[in-house]
């Protein structure tokens, strides 16, 4: 790995550890190897959002050309958000693409992602299904996002109605996550979800 990239990551790693956000348990970084090319990030779901109380794990890959090119970041924890793929965890955020600037750091990236959870950009979606729900049935979006946070990110808000519907599909032999995706995509209407799953 290029010297400059390693030097930067070492320093940024310390910066995150010392930052006040860590003190508030809002962000965290962990090294996955000695060469500073792969890191694990964590951000807390921001308060007053459906993600509140959840912890979201990120995969961070540092390219050879860092910091002249942005790090490659992806959600490992499954999440229901217009700008994050519910399938792959890929993120649509300008600073991770053409709006990257060399002075940005792991800390600013994590904080930007946290901000993205607070303020989605449904007009620039990564997940069209989620974005459509966000715009057309925001109440249902809130429920779904909160439910996903509960199931995948350890959020506190259990939604009994959602769990029941998933169990009913599971009883029919559908895998749980598949059932959740189908129900989430059809505003938790059991009939339409079933129809889609068995068509």
């Amino acid at each position: 790995m290029a010297n400059i990239a390693a030097q930067r990551i070492k320093r940024e790693f310390k910066e995150v550890i010392k930052s006040e956000e860590v003190a508030k348990c809002a962000i965290r970084v962990e090294l996955l190897n000695d060469t500073f090319t792969e890191l694990k990030g964590e951000i807390a779901g921001p308060p007053d959002t459906p993600y509140e109380g959840g912890t979201f794990v990120l995969e961070i890959k540092v390219p050879e050309t860092y910091p002249f090119n942005p790090p490659k970041v992806r959600f490992v924890t499954k999440i229901w958000h217009p700008n994050i793929s519910s399938v792959t965890g890929a993120i649509c955020l300008d600073i991770l693409k053409d709006q990257w600037a060399a002075a940005m750091t792991l800390r600013t990236v994590l904080l930007s992602l946290q901000a993205l959870l607070s303020a989605a950009e449904p007009d620039d979606p990564q997940d069209a299904v989620v974005a459509k729900q966000y715009k057309e049935n925001n109440e249902m979006f809130q429920i779904t996002a909160r439910h996903w946070t509960n199931v995948y990110a350890g959020g506190p808000n259990i939604n009994k109605d959602c769990d029941d519907k998933i169990r009913r599909l599971a009883d029919m032999g559908i895998e749980e996550h598949q059932a959740r995706v189908a129900l989430s995509s059809y505003d938790w209407e059991l009939e339409r979800a079933t129809e889609q799953l068995f068509s």
């Binding site: 400059i4 002249f68 090119n69 600037a101 060399a102 002075a103 940005m104």
Partner: peptide, 15 residues
């Protein structure tokens, strides 16, 4: 550093 950055993108890396 700044020469390398500007060769990719003619902006200030901070702002």
């Amino acid at each position: 550093c700044i020469t390398e950055w500007i060769s990719r993108q003619p902006t200030c890396p901070v702002d």
